[in-house]
Amino acid sequence: MPDRPMSASQFPSTSGEEPPNLSMSVWPTGQRDLATQLRDADCVRGTDTDIDLIPPAIAAQAIATYSLPGDLVLDPDCGAGVVLVKALQAGRHALGLTTSSGWWTLARANITATKAAGAWRDGSVLDAYPTLLATIRAAGLVGRVGLVLTALRTPADDPGEHAVGPDRDPTVAIDELAATLAYCEPLLRSGGHLVVVARPRRNADGSLVDLTTPLIAAGTSAGLAPVDRCIALIAGLRGSRLVTRASLADRRAVARARANGAPVALPAHHEVLVFQLAHDAELAAAAAEGRWPTKHKTATRSAVNGVDYLGWRRAA
């Protein structure tokens, strides 16, 4: 693993190139509004102030689909800790990292409340940057994480006031995420998954920002292979109709955008991109086609602090 992971911007798509043809699925995860989801998950007061949180229904769907009971679920930028709560409630172990004292307090409170309610698996949150995962102190996690589940987060200096209106350029956030994914890749066990959830971002003219292409580039630059793309609804389904469940802040942002001449719609979904270790994805594709890879070799990743862990040796 390189000491300085390359950013997604260093892996631009060829002009006109389409993202990989991934299987697409739609998750009906918006049948209840966010406030109800947080209440039913017994999240503590203040959790809803995390504007980039993964809604509990989406976190639960990802955990149920891409991990097994007893797995370790890691969120390297956990915010208020919703992923940790849903992991514990689903019978998984949970580990989160954050450098915000406010988020640490909320995440810790959420873990405590969840365990007090009967979730007996191990859960913890560390006051640390994701770079901790690339040090010798994280050696015990190498090859043991069943699921990395995290959100594309707004940079710390972005107040995030416009949940629906124009957003700042997400390039910085994507580059930071690309580095984090590189730190997480050696930690995945064979058969594990890495899932990134991103709320919609908009350009100044109200059009949606293409997050799929740079996020796939970020995962690929970390040595991962994209395997699924999902649309996780935050709007309810009523027959063939979508019923928006936007917050008051979202509705006000839409009103401001329209008053400024940018007719935008209320958000109805989050983007979910799923990755696996490149070798696991290759084997899965070979099995689906009824063949077996004919060439095998061992690739050794760069050591951290002069130590080369066996968990970093991947067949390719």
Rank of each mutant, 00 (worst) to 15 (best):
D40Q: 13
G118I: 12
P55S: 13
L72R: 07
G91Y: 04
V85H: 01
L53S: 00
D122I: 09
G30V: 02
D127I: 04
A35D: 12
P56S: 12
P76V: 06
A109D: 13
G96R: 00
T112R: 12
G118Y: 11
L34F: 11
S124Y: 04
A128I: 04
G81M: 05
Y129G: 09
D75G: 07
K86N: 13
A41M: 08
T65F: 05
D52M: 05
S100G: 12
D71V: 10
D50R: 02
A128V: 01
D122Q: 13
A57E: 08
S124V: 03
W104R: 07
A109P: 03
G79P: 04
I54K: 01
S101E: 10
R45H: 07
D50C: 09
V26F: 04
L132P: 00
K86C: 12
T105G: 15
A107G: 05
D122F: 06
R32Q: 14
R121Q: 15
T114L: 07
A119Q: 02
W120E: 12
L126I: 08
A80C: 14
D33N: 15
Y66L: 08
D42E: 08
V83M: 04
D71A: 15
V125T: 11
A117H: 08
W120D: 13
S101F: 10
I54D: 01
N110L: 06
A128Q: 12
T98D: 12
T49E: 08
G70L: 07
L97H: 00
L106Y: 02
P76D: 07
R108P: 01
S100E: 12
S67A: 15
A94E: 04
L72A: 06
T29K: 00
P20T: 12
L53I: 01
D122H: 14
L106M: 10
T99L: 12
L88C: 07
V73Y: 00
A80S: 15
R39V: 10
V83E: 06
P130R: 03
T47D: 01
R92I: 09
D71W: 04
P19F: 06
A64N: 14
M24D: 11
K86I: 05
D48G: 10
D42K: 10
D122L: 10
I54M: 03
L133V: 05
A113R: 15
T65D: 14
A116C: 11
I54C: 05
G102K: 11
G91N: 11
